[in-house]
């Protein structure tokens, strides 16, 4: 059994937070999570969080929307019930395509936007009724918090680095026990 301390490190500003993160990482300490009141630029990179791929997902959802709209209009207007409306016949898809462009575009945007947002909400588990994810309520106002899970000796080192960089508080919030991997 490996004992680890749960530590909340509170900062009053984003520069000390960034400096502490960089120094902690240099010392080989893994930063479990960070809670900030607004997006701190470069924090994700400093913490070693990989880039999000949600934009790629959005692109894929978008081309799905394009295909769905194409399929829908081809089926309804060309295949299922072709009509000659006002001298404008619907005999072939390529012939009518110019008139189908607006809806194809709208459907692309519709799917790209909504499915991306749904992916974002589900992957981050942000849904109505979910309990607040921030352990300290001050982090949505003006405080910045690092969450660490460290062994006793790492804790000492981390505390020193955090204090040196201007941490306002270093709070020990209990312990967890981790089954060591062999």
């Amino acid at each position: 059994m490996l004992k680890k301390n749960k530590i909340h490190v509170i900062f009053g500003d984003e520069e000390p937070l960034m400096n502490a993160v960089l120094e902690l990482r240099k010392a080989g300490i893994r930063i479990k999570d960070a809670f900030t009141p607004f997006p701190v630029h470069g924090l994700d990179a400093a913490m070693g969080i990989p880039r999000t791929r949600i934009a790629i997902a959005s692109f894929l959802f978008g081309i799905t929307g394009t295909s769905l709209a194409t399929l829908m209009m081809w089926y309804m207007m060309i295949y299922d019930w072709p009509n000659d409306i006002g001298g404008k016949p619907n005999w072939a898809y390529y012939y009518n395509m110019p008139a189908f462009i607006p809806i194809t575009f709208e459907s692309t945007v519709f799917c790209a936007a909504h499915l991306m947002v749904l992916t974002y909400l589900l992957s981050s588990w942000l849904l109505p009724g979910v309990p607040p994810k921030n352990p300290d309520p001050r982090t949505t106002d003006d405080k910045f918090m690092l969450y660490l899970e460290l062994t006793d000796e790492q804790s000492k080192l981390a505390e020193d680095i955090a204090k040196k960089n201007g941490a306002e508080e270093v709070n020990y919030k209990g312990e967890i026990y981790i089954e060591p991997k062999y």
């Binding site: 607004f38 981050s124 109505p128 994810k133 921030n134």
Partner: peptide
């Protein structure tokens, strides 16, 4: 929606 301002979530939200 249970928002907590986690670094990963901010990164996603910005994107």
């Amino acid at each position: 929606f249970g928002w907590g301002g986690r670094a990963k979530h901010w990164q996603r939200l910005e994107e």
